[in-house]
Structure formats: C-alpha cells, structure tokens
Amino acid sequence: MIADILVLACLAVGTFFNALGIVGLLRFPDVYTRMHATTKMTTFGSVFTALAVIIYGGASYLGSTDPQYVILSVHTLIAAVALAFTNALGSHAIARGAHRSGIKPTPAVVDRLEEVQP
C-alpha cells in the first residue's frame, strides 16, 4: 500500500517535470535558456520515473521473492545513473559548440565569454 503511493507520487513528479521541461523548450527565447529547461527538468523527471520503477521492483520482490525483480531494479539504477551523467555532459558540449559557432544569448544582461573569445 505504501509502495503503491510512493510509485504513484514518483510517476506524478516525473511526468510533471518532464512536461514543464517540454513547455520551457517551446517557450523560452534562445538556445541557452531552452537548454536550462530541457537539461535540468527532463533529467530530473526521467530519474524520478526510473525511481518509480526501482521502488516497484523492490516492492514486488518483497511480495513474491522472484529474483527477476531485483535484476529489474539494478538495471534501471544503472540506466538512471548513465542518463544523469551523459545529459549534463551533452548539454555542456552543445552550449560550448553553440557559442563557438557565433550564436549570441539574445536577451542578455552581460556576456563575459565574448570579451575573451571573439
């Protein structure tokens, strides 16, 4: 019963943040601000959906003692860790490439990188 509520809560949080990430991707004005929405919020949301699967696997293992559910949890944990690391690195690479190709942050208060790297 408690596991039921936890799984539902994790899925709700994950879906909410994923949806807001997509809204931010469609709504924000330039590349860098869009990247804020997608990187942070879809990573957080996807890790929470994975967490729901991990909790489901643990609860099902306690109910039935089928080792298949432990394998499910461990593999999902590995997938979530890989996702969190690769997303941060990938968005950093895209930001660097975008600035090198000459895309300026259009509504910007200050741009210290432009002074160093023409």
Binding site: I94, G97, H99
Partner: peptide, 10 residues
C-alpha cells in the same frame, strides 16, 4: 550528441 556539438562548433 558530442559529435553533433563538435560539428556545430566547427
């Protein structure tokens, strides 16, 4: 993604 980013950055 890394290769696309490198290509965008020239």
């Amino acid at each position: 993604t890394l290769f696309i980013a490198k290509y965008i950055g020239g």
